[in-house]
Simulated scan of single mutants.
Amino acid sequence: MKILLSNDDGIHSAGLWILANHLNQVDSVTIVAPDREQSATGTSVTLRHPLRISKVASQLDGVECWATEGLPGDAVILGLEHVLEKPVDLVVSGINNGPNVGDDVLISGTVGAALQAYLRNVPAIAISTFNIESTNHETPARLAAIIAADIASGRLTGDIFLNINTPDIPLDRIKGVRLCHLAHKTHIDTVKEGHDGRREFYWLVRSKLDFEAEAGTDIKAIEQNCISVTELHTNLFRKPPIATLEILCNEWFHTLKEDR
């Protein structure tokens, strides 16, 4: 199994390397990630100027690592089309510090990176923790490795594009792994005005709306101390989920607990 790992927090992100360590126990991992933090870049790709890519020192034996100019989507495209020989069996994007739930998936660089794999018929996973200052990366990293193993063994098949969010709590407080749909109308961008002494400027601020999350949504799962698993697709309307996915969510939770 050949795994490509990327993110939107940059090549030096702690979550990236913890994730690489766990996935490397499943099979061969190569990292191609942005050379700097690139959050909230969504599905953007670079089309109007060239990109450079350079091999960098790896923190893990046996894991090759490349840093790219450009955006998270660029990194995955370069990884799939240039760095790695085909076929690649799985692309994982993360671990992102901060949630990618509800409407956030539309601007998430973490999800945008995974999307480029999905568009090329490569199974894709975007994985995040719910706290922007989280240091609790072991649980999402272990879960990603469990899912990767199920893909490698053929237990999870189909048109795979998963968005996963883990609450920022110890594993013994997590109540389950729940298959969810995206919450809707969760955030709105507002404008703050300022002045730098010479001219006015405007700062876009993403604000969380005060609302009650609906049952079955990713946000409600997090509120109830569960890991949310949401199946994404390029059709913005919902479609029937992978038939075995809800069963696998329950199994993944039990495996997480057993592996402690």
Results as ranks from 00 to 15, higher is better:
residue 1 M to S: 14
residue 15 G to S: 10
residue 32 V to E: 13
residue 76 V to K: 08
residue 168 D to V: 04
residue 175 K to L: 14
residue 198 R to L: 13
residue 19 L to P: 04
residue 234 T to I: 13
residue 74 D to E: 08
residue 90 L to C: 07
residue 122 V to S: 01
residue 40 A to D: 15
residue 218 D to H: 04
residue 242 I to F: 02
residue 89 D to L: 04
residue 195 H to N: 15
residue 190 T to K: 03
residue 41 T to V: 12
residue 235 N to F: 09
residue 104 D to N: 07
residue 140 P to E: 04
residue 215 A to N: 11
residue 36 R to L: 10
residue 66 W to D: 10
residue 28 S to T: 14
residue 72 P to M: 07
residue 92 V to Q: 06
residue 27 D to W: 01
residue 26 V to S: 09
residue 46 T to W: 05
residue 103 D to I: 10
residue 49 H to S: 14
residue 188 I to W: 00
residue 230 T to W: 03
residue 21 N to A: 12
residue 12 H to D: 14
residue 19 L to G: 05
residue 138 E to D: 08
residue 150 D to C: 02
residue 184 H to L: 07
residue 54 S to V: 10
residue 193 E to Q: 06
residue 50 P to M: 09
residue 235 N to H: 11
residue 14 A to T: 14
residue 230 T to Y: 11
residue 89 D to Y: 04
residue 226 C to Q: 15
residue 257 K to W: 00
residue 179 L to R: 10
residue 200 E to I: 04
residue 215 A to C: 01
residue 144 A to R: 01
residue 85 E to N: 14
residue 71 L to N: 11
residue 25 Q to L: 14
residue 182 L to R: 08
residue 250 N to K: 12
residue 231 E to R: 09
residue 154 G to L: 01
residue 70 G to W: 07
residue 55 K to W: 01
residue 162 L to H: 02
residue 127 I to Y: 02
residue 205 V to A: 02
residue 42 G to A: 06
residue 250 N to H: 11
residue 57 A to L: 08
residue 127 I to P: 03
residue 228 S to H: 07
residue 236 L to V: 09
residue 37 E to L: 13
residue 34 P to A: 08
residue 222 I to C: 10
residue 15 G to R: 09
residue 96 N to Y: 02
residue 54 S to D: 11
residue 170 P to N: 05
residue 37 E to H: 15
residue 99 P to S: 15
residue 31 I to N: 07
residue 73 G to N: 09
residue 173 R to P: 00
residue 31 I to E: 06
residue 116 Q to T: 03
residue 173 R to W: 08
residue 58 S to F: 14
residue 215 A to H: 08
residue 222 I to G: 07
residue 184 H to G: 01
residue 248 L to K: 01
residue 65 C to N: 06
residue 67 A to W: 13
residue 233 H to R: 15
residue 217 T to D: 07
residue 148 A to H: 12
residue 183 A to Q: 10
residue 94 G to Y: 00
residue 78 L to S: 12
residue 164 I to P: 01
residue 80 L to V: 09
residue 88 V to M: 10
residue 46 T to I: 08
residue 27 D to L: 03
residue 211 F to W: 09
residue 217 T to Y: 02
residue 83 V to M: 05
residue 65 C to V: 15
